[in-house]
Computed example of a mutant assay.
Amino acid sequence: MISIEGLSKVFRLKQKNITAVDDMSLTIHDGDIFGVIGYSGAGKSTFIRLLNRLEEPTNGKITIHGEEITAMSKKKLRIARQDIGMIFQHFNLLWSRTVSENIAFPLEIAGVPMEERKKRVSELVDLVGLKGRENAYPAQLSGGQKQRVGIARALANNPKVLLCDEATSALDPETTDSILDLLVDINERLGLTIILITHEMHVIRKICNRVAVMENGKVVEQGEVLDVFLKPNKPVTRKFVEQVMGDPDGDHNQLLEVYSSGLVVRLHFVGESANQALISKISREFQIEVNILQGKITQTKLGAYGTLIVQINGEPNEINNTIGFIKEETSVEVEVLTHA
């Protein structure tokens, strides 16, 4: 488990104090893929560099697997960092070294014998899907291949924690998805705890179990990804959810201008309810007509989440019975947007 208590970082710039991370507290469980999301300047990059003390904290405590990182001497910290791998937005590869030599670099620093290094490099090349590219130089690789080298290098010393600093921001969408799939595979195979910072909600949606939202150095919201998607509490969180789901209020206001008859409702589907054949069921059960106006369902790592805006026409009594049935007999949430 990773415990972060009251973590702060204050920079002194032009005789002013700039607070990059402000009294941050989090608990991250073993084996989690934990996302930290925020816009530029939110403090997320500083936060992740505090975890392995690439930045020294001003205040607070970081404990990883029972070891207090913030209290370690520099000598002990060098050893502890072998358990904390890190990958970067711009890869940070050694351009004069081949793929194999880049991956072997942390093993050389750790004093691992050559034969053992070769074996470990071969294992990692297979793991990240770079078989046949061992002797290529970074300039000969695509962006996705460079990041795979970065991931393999970060895994060289068998770390227990992998820190990802905007690891997909420099990649195109298709390559991003392939790197995210690789991180999920590594998490499941190795039981590795992954902490991933990003400004893209798509990344959080695709692979994270839990998420913390940062703004102005503070964590303003946190929880399971599915819960945050369903009920974002803070304006900044709602903006991130809109990256994936669109602006629900803007969408439904436009629809209400066009569809003024009957009852217009928004149905919220979560988890297993997203697979229910609800529309066909209520159309059979009640004397109503259902017109689907708009809908979107997206997958998170913990299940599906989606909304469907529908217009229900019929006698008022039948419409009321329909709404009552959905509320009482299904796990779908109903939000009435306009009354008949």
Rank of each mutant, 00 (worst) to 15 (best):
V211A: 06
V225S: 04
F11C: 01
S8K: 05
R53W: 14
V112W: 10
G223L: 14
I197A: 02
N291P: 00
H199G: 04
F240Q: 02
A156D: 02
L7S: 01
K239C: 01
R210E: 06
I4N: 14
A104K: 12
V211Q: 12
L155Q: 03
E257F: 11
N209A: 11
V244H: 05
A274M: 10
I87L: 03
A277R: 06
F34A: 00
Q145E: 15
R78W: 13
T70Q: 14
S100E: 13
L13Q: 10
K119V: 12
R153I: 00
I186H: 11
G223N: 15
Q140K: 04
D177T: 15
R81K: 11
L196H: 02
C208T: 09
D23C: 09
E289I: 14
P232R: 14
G191S: 01
L293R: 12
D247E: 13
L278S: 11
L50M: 06
P138M: 05
I62V: 05
V220S: 09
R97M: 07
N209S: 13
A104C: 09
D22L: 03
N233L: 13
A139T: 07
R117K: 13
V125N: 05
S178G: 08
A170Y: 01
S261G: 09
S8G: 03
I297Y: 12
K327L: 04
Q311G: 01
K281F: 08
E333F: 01
I179K: 02
E101C: 10
F325S: 07
G31T: 01
G262M: 12
